[in-house]
């Protein structure tokens, strides 16, 4: 579910924003670590050390087949975060130009774009992805590609309504009277005023995609079995909840905090960017 731009709380306490930014940096750092390696060993199975609670050798214990949970959580950062980031970028890249054109042209163009997005919005997206990803067997990246189109409408609606609100403001009409061309008005005059919306939408879309893709992995339909995707880890370690709860708690906490940080940063950036205007 999207939280909607119109419902953000008035102002967040700055301590929470700092924590959110710090956590976002941590996740970014983990992504780098998981690429570089740094002696990370997420895959080696040590059956003799399986199902262990935290020990000095394995800070978060081990999973069913004796893999180090900490190493897997660290490695999972990039696996879990990159897909949603790509989906969010893709969705915004489609939504913003469409919104600008729909708002500017109005009439039939607007009607077609909006009815299409209404229809997509009415679809229960998690069901659609489950059915498509499950039956067609395309796995994670097919699901991500489908998700882009399912996520576009919510951002598109917000961006269009902001663009539409700008369209009939006197400064836009003044630009028309000056003789500024339509592309110039769209990109030089309207687009900068959409910036707060775009940034906020980007982060909201990221959170929505993170939830959808990790849910899919959790259901066993996204990332392949044995992957370090946090959703997959959580599902596979669920039966360890009595022996080593950290094996599934750690990825759950990481997911909750990642989503929370992104939402908080989105709220904060939106308010900050809006605040710079009159």
């Amino acid at each position: 579910m999207s939280t909607g731009l119109q419902t953000r709380p008035a102002r967040q306490s700055s301590a929470l924003v700092v924590l959110a930014l710090a956590f976002a940096c941590l996740v970014a750092g983990l992504c780098v670590v998981s690429f570089v390696g740094l002696g990370l060993d997420p895959q080696t199975q040590r059956l003799l050390e399986a199902r262990q609670p935290p020990t000095p050798g394995h800070w978060l214990g081990t999973d069913l087949v004796g893999r180090d949970v900490l190493a897997r959580v660290v490695h999972g950062a990039s696996v879990t975060v990159i897909g949603p980031a790509a989906v969010a970028l893709g969705a915004v890249a489609i939504a913003v130009p469409l919104a600008l054109v729909a708002a500017e042209r109005g009439g039939v163009v607007d009607a077609v774009v909006m009815r299409t997005s209404d229809t997509l919005l009415a679809l229960p997206s998690i069901l659609v992805i489950i059915v498509i990803a499950g039956l067609f067997g395309g796995g994670y990246w097919l699901a991500a590609a489908v998700l882009v189109f399912l996520i576009v409408p919510s951002g598109l609606r917000i961006a269009r309504s902001v663009a539409l609100g700008q369209k009939n403001l006197p400064y836009q009409e003044a630009a028309r009277l000056i003789g500024a061309s339509t592309p110039r008005r769209m990109f030089v005059h309207t687009l900068p005023n959409l910036l707060p919306t775009i940034v906020a939408t980007l982060l909201l879309d990221f959170v929505a995609a993170l939830v959808a893709l990790s849910s899919l992995s959790f259901l066993g339909l996204g990332a392949p079995p044995g992957s370090t995707d946090w959703g997959t880890m959580l599902a596979e370690n669920l039966r360890l909840i009595e022996q080593n709860p950290w094996a599934c708690l750690a990825p759950a906490v990481m997911l909750v905090l990642t989503a929370y940080s992104a939402t908080t940063i989105g709220d904060w950036l939106h308010l900050r960017l809006e605040g710079r205007r009159g």
Binding site: Y171, L177, G278
Partner: peptide, 25 residues
């Protein structure tokens, strides 16, 4: 020319694009 017909609008607060400086406008 059309461009030689200009306008001053009622609302001073939305007459200028908040994203650009006075000089830019």
């Amino acid at each position: 020319a059309r461009r030689q017909v200009q306008c001053v609008f009622q609302d001073p607060y939305s007459s200028l694009n908040p994203s650009h400086s006075i000089g830019f406008a």
